[in-house]
Amino acid sequence: MIKGIKGIRRRRVAAVAVTAGAVLATGAFAAAPAQAVTTPTIMGKTGYVMNNANGATLYNKGMDTKLSTGSTTKIMTAKVVLSQSNLNLDAKVTIQKAYSDYIVAKGASSAHLIVGDKVTVRQLLYGLMLPSGCDAAYALADKYGTGSTRALRVKSFLAKMNSTAKSLGMTNSHFDSFDGIGNGGNYSTAKDLTKLASNAMKSANFRAIVKTKSYTAKTITKTGSTRTMAAWTNTNTLLSSYSGAIGVKTGSGVEAKYCLVFAATRNGKTVIGTILADTNATQRATDATKLLNYGFAKLA
């Protein structure tokens, strides 16, 4: 009787072993494979997305192709200003006629600054990044360049932009303007601009500015009274349309077409990227949305 029971037990153990081996062979108990994330198609000529935490590439379409950048150039303008030693954001800058004349001559985007008004550096940065004011860009370049003439100060500021690009490893970039209205030598790449934006976002002041949807500046007039400016609205529509969007800058132009450097944070993860030479303003936002969704799906 005991011998029979032992035999039955041995046969059961063997059967279990065979069954377990079969299960392992077929992978029935293996973890289900993660569903593949479909790589999106974008209309922009180039695009790049990375994990902001470690710089890992999440998406690439011509990331090193040199293109005109439009007003995404202003990210570097803001970066240079915010990197000044002993920066006083409340320092006042008097708006010069040259800034206004420049806007008219170039048909450029404007913060509608009034000649003679005293505007703080902080306000100029908001005027630079929200309505993409080229007058604000000129004022900042004039303020933070060095030299005895405005032309020399602008030249000095551009040198700071290029030295900063070099220090950040932006090997495929060059700036010959403070606002993106270039003179034939203003270019960057989707990867370089993403790298720049990631670095700029380390500044609390920069982050606060580029995530702001609307800002109203109160300037001081020639007579000392207070002028309440019309509200500046951020040209980056993702701030309203994409959950978790935190910046950073639009750009456009005849040569640049439609550009967007974008970033968003969800569940403690930040995805940051750039689209250059898109077909229109609506499409660049659509493409950026696709790339952000793709980036977060890759990080999930």
Score class of each variant (00 low, 15 high):
285 A>H: 10
161 M>W: 09
123 Q>V: 04
202 K>D: 12
30 A>C: 05
270 T>E: 01
105 A>I: 01
172 N>S: 02
201 M>Y: 04
263 A>S: 14
156 S>F: 09
60 N>Q: 13
282 T>F: 05
291 L>Q: 06
218 K>G: 02
300 A>E: 10
99 Y>R: 02
262 F>Y: 14
153 R>N: 07
248 V>P: 04
217 A>D: 10
241 S>Q: 14
123 Q>F: 05
236 N>E: 02
186 N>L: 01
203 S>R: 01
223 T>V: 05
240 S>E: 12
128 L>W: 00
147 G>H: 05
214 S>D: 15
262 F>R: 00
255 E>Q: 15
107 G>W: 00
31 A>Q: 11
142 D>Y: 15
254 V>L: 12
27 G>A: 08
38 T>I: 08
249 K>S: 11
5 I>P: 02
63 M>Q: 14
101 D>H: 04
241 S>D: 12
33 P>K: 15
96 Q>F: 04
53 A>I: 08
46 T>I: 12
47 G>W: 00
185 G>I: 03
60 N>A: 15
250 T>Y: 10
234 N>C: 07
94 T>S: 05
131 P>S: 11
76 M>A: 01
37 V>I: 09
4 G>T: 11
233 T>G: 01
142 D>I: 06
169 G>E: 06
252 S>Q: 09
147 G>T: 10
130 L>Q: 09
298 K>V: 04
46 T>N: 03
241 S>K: 15
91 A>H: 06
259 C>E: 05
135 D>Y: 01
209 I>A: 00
157 F>Y: 07
43 M>I: 08
120 T>S: 14
264 A>C: 10
157 F>H: 00
249 K>E: 05
20 A>L: 15
210 V>I: 14
33 P>D: 14
39 T>E: 14
277 A>M: 07
45 K>Q: 15
293 N>Q: 07
194 T>V: 02
200 A>R: 03
221 T>L: 07
35 Q>H: 13
202 K>W: 15
161 M>R: 00
137 A>R: 06
292 L>H: 12
169 G>C: 08
131 P>Q: 11
11 R>M: 13
161 M>Q: 15
121 V>L: 08
151 A>L: 03
182 G>H: 10
30 A>S: 14
288 A>H: 11
216 T>R: 03
166 K>T: 14
113 L>K: 07
95 I>T: 08
269 K>A: 06
34 A>L: 15
162 N>Y: 07
47 G>S: 01
28 A>Y: 14
214 S>N: 14
69 T>K: 00
55 G>A: 04
7 G>I: 13
298 K>S: 04
237 T>P: 02
68 S>N: 09
169 G>K: 06
217 A>E: 07
40 P>K: 05
197 A>F: 03
282 T>A: 13
283 Q>F: 03
72 T>P: 09
203 S>C: 02
232 W>S: 06
154 V>D: 05
285 A>T: 12
164 T>P: 08
165 A>G: 12
